[in-house]
């Protein structure tokens, strides 16, 4: 590795992704500092992480000593200055360009001259986020999948100004964590979301066009292609409101008609049908009846 990574900071570590990323780092033996602006979020994440580790022990996937070592490697802070000693800082704060740019500017002041900054953004440009730092050559895209502590894939993307050394060091760090990195250009949605978001929209449009019911579409995709989940079941899990937000992030920058929010999706969200979290989306999670059937 060009720069030895010993201490890792995670910004937004009280959130869904940040908490998982902190576990990935600590599990690989890195001193890990969880930073979040919300103390309550950090507390909640610490409890969830402890539960996850306890479950790993009870399932025989982790030893008791291993668990204790991971917990000992983790600390938390609500002050950005607490990230001072980090060699690598991964941000997983809200998906908002101005918040991420502002955070990078503050990390410039808080961290060492040669610290590396990685962004877990799903939809924003790495180059635009990096423009918030005085050292864009030290900023790289590092997109984990949900849940980060279980999913091995990481999409690694250099911004226009990212240095080769930064990219290489960050890549090697992901490998040291036992993850599987793939390299993508800094383009909207990288690989995963660039393929998935429009595909899911196409499935919604097929329902709207009366091609088949949601259940028939999902069954076809599973039996025909061997996917574990059908697209409509997956959308219910992701949340239909989240899909609207993804469309609203992608369509204005790509102008890809497949990324535009399908009218049926908007109507369902307006009606409060958000998927599993609201009890009904394309499928009904109380009665198991099908939407529109």
């Amino acid at each position: 590795m060009t720069r030895a990574i010993k201490t890792v900071g995670v910004c937004g570590a009280g959130g869904t992704m940040g908490a998982g990323i902190a576990l990935v780092a600590a599990r690989a033996g890195f001193k890990t500092i969880s930073f979040d602006m919300s103390e309550g979020a950090l507390d909640k994440a610490a409890k969830q992480s402890a539960d996850f580790l306890d479950k790993s022990v009870s399932r025989g996937k982790l030893s008791g000593d291993g668990r204790n070592a991971i917990v000992a490697a983790m600390s938390r802070t609500t002050s950005i200055d607490g990230l001072r000693d980090c060699d690598l800082v991964i941000e997983a704060v809200f998906e908002d360009l101005s918040i991420k740019r502002d955070l990078l500017g503050r990390l410039d002041d808080a961290c060492a001259e040669d610290a590396i900054f990685a962004s877990n953004t799903s939809t924003l440009s790495i180059t635009e986020i990096a423009s918030g730092s005085k050292h864009p050559e030290r900023v790289v895209g590092m997109h984990f999948c949900l849940p980060a502590q279980l999913m091995k894939l990481i999409e690694m993307s250099p911004g226009i100004l990212t240095s080769e050394a930064t990219f290489r060091t960050a890549w090697q760090w992901t490998e040291a964590c036992g993850q599987m990195p793939v390299k993508t250009q800094d383009k909207p949605g990288f690989i995963l979301n660039a393929l998935l978001v429009p595909f899911n929209n196409d499935a919604i449009r097929a329902v709207e066009a009366g091609v088949a019911t949601p259940a028939d579409i999902d069954r076809a995709i599973k039996a025909g292609l061997g996917y574990k989940m059908g697209p409509l079941e997956l959308l219910d899990l992701i949340g239909l409101d989240t899909q609207v937000r993804l469309c609203e992030a992608f369509y204005p920058i790509t102008l890809d008609p497949r990324a535009a929010t399908p009218p049926l999706l908007r109507r369902m969200v307006a009606a409060g049908l958000l998927g599993r979290k609201s009890g009904r989306g394309f499928f009904d999670y109380q009665g198991n009846a099908m939407f529109g059937a």
Binding site: A194, F199, D202, A206, G210, I217, R219, A223
Partner: peptide, 24 residues
Amino acid sequence: EVSLCNDQVGRIINRLVVPKYNAA
């Protein structure tokens, strides 16, 4: 396994996978 669909071009699978494979 049977999926019932209406009589539209591409039925279910091709209508959904072709745009994705083309994008890839």
